[in-house]
Amino acid sequence: MALPLAILVGRWLMMAGGVSPLDAGLTAEPVAETINRLGLWALRALWLALAITPLRRLTGWAWLAPWRRPLGLWAFAYGCIHLLVYFVLDQGAAFDLLWADVVKHRFILLGMATWLMLLPLALTSTRASIRRLGGRRWQALHRLVYPAGGAAAIHFILRVKGFQIEPWIYAGLLLTLLGMRMVPRRRIKV
């Protein structure tokens, strides 16, 4: 999960070294391209995190379990950098402009909502937090990941121009992953 970020950082270092954005592989509009790539990886990491539990149920592979938390945290990390680059280089680090954008554009609002929903989950991702909150309350809080995924999927759909298939594929995958949770648990042994 660190690899796409490392590649992006490498490309920015090339640009810092005088290579044109086009030759650095970030198109003629490197800011937009960077924001898009970060968002896409945030989405992918979140989808993978959401895939762990249904995959475990389906296959009984217990070794998948420890991957869930790091994938969730990677999703949040990519989301944070995605938001930060947008805020600094697209909104000129001005909170009034950011607020105006959030109020005006539904897709920005949904992106912000996604980040705000993931924030408490990242903050309570430690074992100590589970102990402090108690397993049941911690689990209830972490169900926020479902609406967060939904908001992220719609954020992507609303973002693209015209009818493009890619965001709908992600939305379909999310529905599948959430739908698999509806299947009554039978085989899972915790």
């Binding site: 003629a28 509009e29 800011v31 937009a32 280089l89 697209d90 000129g92 105006a100 954008d101 005006k104 554009h105 539904r106 897709f107 609303l158 973002r159 121009k161």
Partner: peptide, 17 residues
């Protein structure tokens, strides 16, 4: 404004801000 894009600003290709 467009539902997706704030039209009061633009980025000139080649500019950072």
């Amino acid at each position: 404004d467009h539902p997706r894009w704030t039209q009061s600003r633009e980025r000139r290709i080649g500019d950072w801000l």
